[in-house]
């Protein structure tokens, strides 16, 4: 599997819908390729930010919720850290 193929498969990998055979190749590639590890981590972060940061613009809601969300994303990312392949 090339880096390009891996990146094409990321969404299915994250959804758990990547067929077993490709999943093995995917993880094999990840274990050897730092660029792809970084890409996957940044993809996950971008998705999380997209999901959590669109909040109502009126202040009552926006000052309270997102900070917590961001902190928890941050914590999750740091816990995730090196072992992206699980």
């Amino acid at each position: 599997m090339t880096c390009r193929e891996l990146i094409d498969f990321i969404m299915e990998y994250e959804d758990g819908t990547l067929p077993e055979k490709q999943r093995v190749l995917f993880e094999e590639h990840l274990s050897l390729c730092e660029d792809c590890v970084h890409y996957l981590a940044s993809y996950r972060t971008a998705v999380q930010l997209g999901k959590s940061l669109i909040m109502p613009s009126n202040e009552k809601v926006s000052t309270q919720v997102p900070e917590k969300l961001i902190r928890s994303i941050l914590a999750a990312r740091q816990a995730d850290g090196t072992s992206l392949t699980e």
């Binding site: 090339t2 880096c3 390009r4 193929e5 990146i7 660029d35 970084h38 890409y39 981590a41 940044s42 972060t45 961001i70 994303i73 941050l74 990312r77 740091q78």
Partner: peptide, 17 residues
């Protein structure tokens, strides 16, 4: 990507937020 499937300009890892 390059022809061999490597990403062009992969850049550094993302730091913390």
């Amino acid at each position: 990507y390059y022809d061999d499937g490597h990403r062009r300009d992969p850049g550094p890892a993302w730091g913390s937020l």
